[in-house]
Amino acid sequence: MSALKTSLKESPPAPARPVRKRRSRAAEDMPVGHGQTRRSQLFTLAGLGLFFIYSVAPVWWLITAATKNQRDLYADSGLRGLWFSDFNFIENLRQVLTYDDGIFARWTLNTVFYSGVGALVSTLIALAAGYGISKFQFRGRRIAMGFIVATFLVPGMLLAFPLYLLFSMLGLVDTVWAVLIPSFINAFSVYLAKVYCDSAVPDELLDAARVDGAGEVRVFFQIVVRIMTSGAATIFLLAFVGSWNSFFLPLMMLRGSDKWTLALGLYAWAGKRAETGTDLTSLVIMGSLLSTIPLAIFMIAMARFWRSGVTLGSIK
């Protein structure tokens, strides 16, 4: 509002100008809002509100459910399920963390390990490959790029089974490597890295460094990687989230529960009711909440990066 007033004050009496100026200022403040009727603004808000409730309510239910003991969980049916009863959060937490000799903590560490190491290595490999394809004119780079894009379309699950056969031949099934190695190679990351490198790394800078006598490896680590930090963060983030959410591959590859991921462990807990009659519902609910929190914090903290990654991926 104050911006609007000053713009009016500053502008000389010429009749047409101030109106246009006011418009453009107002437009900055509310991108499309100006010129809209009150009714359509209300409609917009109502629509947003509905989708907001749809998006958030289930998670809200999960949060309230995690604070209840199993009896209240079943007793609070209907809308009462959306509010708290006896506050049992700490007790549930204790149960999750101590059940089966604290296996839940083990799964959490495993998941962090698989996702962290997998995303780190795959980001490095992708940066190198993306840089190579972007900045060097070697034969076959077009075909290489074609292959990479084509793999987006090859369903991951489809490769999973042949991969299982191969890994069992190599004796890798039920080892940490069976989950780690596949996460190292990510075609989408290479694609993103190539796109970033095209736009962010100037050829002149590379040439200058070479004139100064820097070797190719040094150019890559000291110049390219540094310039592409924010792109690399996006690639890392998307790979991390992808690994954290992966289920099919660990399900196939891992037998011993000490190597499981959170998703696998929660699935096994949820299945106990059908298999053995042990109802672990409140453990699963608490575990679900716990396994979501780190990811949510991580994503919110790095929101800047993954938003740019998504935008970039969609434009090309």
């Binding site: 190579g132 060097f136 070697f138 793999t151 190292f184």
Partner: peptide, 23 residues
């Protein structure tokens, strides 16, 4: 050209191992 291609080697090695060979 060779140096550039070398940067893509880790990826394509993995690519062959994890995509082409299983297929």
């Amino acid at each position: 050209k060779w140096k550039g291609a070398a940067f893509t080697v880790p990826f394509f090695l993995g690519f062959v191992l994890l995509f082409i060979i299983p297929l």
